[in-house]
Simulated scan of single mutants.
Amino acid sequence: MLNDKRIRIITGHYGSGKTEFSLNYAIKLSELNKKVALCDLDVVNLYFRSREKEDLLKEKGIRVIASSMRGNAVDIPAISSEVLAPIEDKSYDAVFDVGGDPAGARTLGRYNPYLKEDDYDMLIVVNANRPETMTKDKVIEYIVRIEDTSRLKVTGLINNTHMLKQTQVNDVLKGYELVNEVSLATGLDIKYNVCLEALKTKLPTNLKGEIFPIKLYMREEWMI
Rank of each mutant, 00 (worst) to 15 (best):
N129S: 12
V154I: 15
P113V: 15
G104E: 04
I143C: 09
N127H: 03
K165E: 12
Q166F: 11
R151T: 15
A105H: 02
N159W: 04
T149Q: 04
K116W: 00
G109T: 11
V139P: 08
N129M: 14
T167H: 10
E132D: 11
T133R: 07
M163R: 15
T107Q: 06
N112S: 11
T167L: 06
L152E: 02
H162P: 05
Q166M: 14
L115Y: 03
T161A: 01
Y111R: 08
N127M: 07
N159T: 14
R130S: 06
P131H: 07
E132Q: 12
V144L: 13
T167F: 02
K116N: 02
Q168K: 14
V139I: 13
N112A: 10
L123I: 10
R106H: 13
L152N: 00
Q168N: 13
T107Y: 00
T167Q: 06
L152V: 12
G156Y: 05
Q168H: 09
L108I: 05
T135Q: 08
Y142M: 14
L108H: 03
N160T: 06
I140C: 03
Q166S: 14
A128E: 12
G109F: 07
I158M: 01
K136N: 14
S150G: 09
A105R: 01
E117T: 11
R130T: 02
E147L: 04
D121H: 07
L123H: 02
R145G: 07
G156A: 11
N127A: 11
Q166W: 09
P131V: 13
D137R: 03
V144R: 14
K165T: 11
I143P: 00
D137V: 13
N129A: 15
E147F: 02
R151K: 15
D148K: 14
T135P: 14
N160R: 04
T155F: 05
Y111M: 10
M163G: 13
I143W: 01
N127G: 05
R110K: 07
K153H: 11
K153A: 10
V144E: 13
D119G: 01
G104C: 00
E141M: 15
G156E: 06
L123D: 04
T155E: 00
D148I: 13
T161K: 06
D137P: 12
N160V: 08
D148W: 08
N112G: 03
T155N: 08
